[in-house]
Amino acid sequence: MIETLALVRLQSIINHAMWHPIVALHIPDGFLNFPVIAVTWVIAIGLIALALRKVQDEYQDRTVPLMGVCAAFIFAAQMINFPIPGGTSGHLLGGTLAGALLGPWAGSLVMSVVFIVQAVVFQDGGITVMGANIFNMGLIGTFGGYYLFRAIRNGIGRDKLQGMVVGTAIAAWVSVMVAAIVCAFELALSEAVPLQVALIAMMSWHVLIGIGEALITVATVTFIWRTRPDLFYRAPHRAITSTPRSLSIR
């Protein structure tokens, strides 16, 4: 009985998230052909293997609990719908946010973990194309998003809120757009959707989704900047205390 209740509740949560779909950034099974599947899987496995090693080096025995809860955090954050300009609603993808908060390696590891759970447990995104989904949103969305954000932030000033805001805003929008374009090319290369149709559909929709992503990411990082700036991957100098970020237990 309890299990059935949990199932019903989960279903309603998923229904809610799914009726406002991020159009096809989670590619389902059956849309990609062998070359695209193979190449993206190889890249995705390489990314995960490298990220695991880098994160283990940095976090050591904190890796499992911290990465676990952070992945659950991204999963929970992705389920929230918010109004995006233009009248529809969307939900966060969180790549740039994960990058800004956790850094490129931990960020992309966490995002990959989220995609694995979504595909295997919730059938959100296929399992044969999981490599492509990790490639699009874990590598391009998170890794790419992070370095774009970092470059802009460094340009404006690492210790300025303005650098954080402008950096995350641009990186969030660009990473969503680039991920959508790459996704369109994957669909076209697999001869599932003609390139023109895929590009038009993906880009017109994600222009808006990207704006929503940027607004929410900016609101989120601004809040953290004001309350716990020491939690950022590269914290502003004033927030760095003698206790390292890792031991910030309150």
């Binding site: 904190r62 609990p65 911290l66 676990g68 809860v69 952070c70 659950a72 955090f73 929970a76 954050a77 929230i80 918010f82 966060l92 946010l97 908060l101 607004l215 929410i216 990411t217 900016v218 609101a219 989120t220 990082v221 601004t222 809040f223 953290i224 309350t227 716990r228 939690l231 890792s246 031991l247 910030s248 237990i249 309150r250």
Partner: peptide, 18 residues
Amino acid sequence: VGNMIGSLFIRTYERGER
């Protein structure tokens, strides 16, 4: 919603440490 996600992250990270 943005503030809530921010707040959730802070709680999450602290929970991870605990």
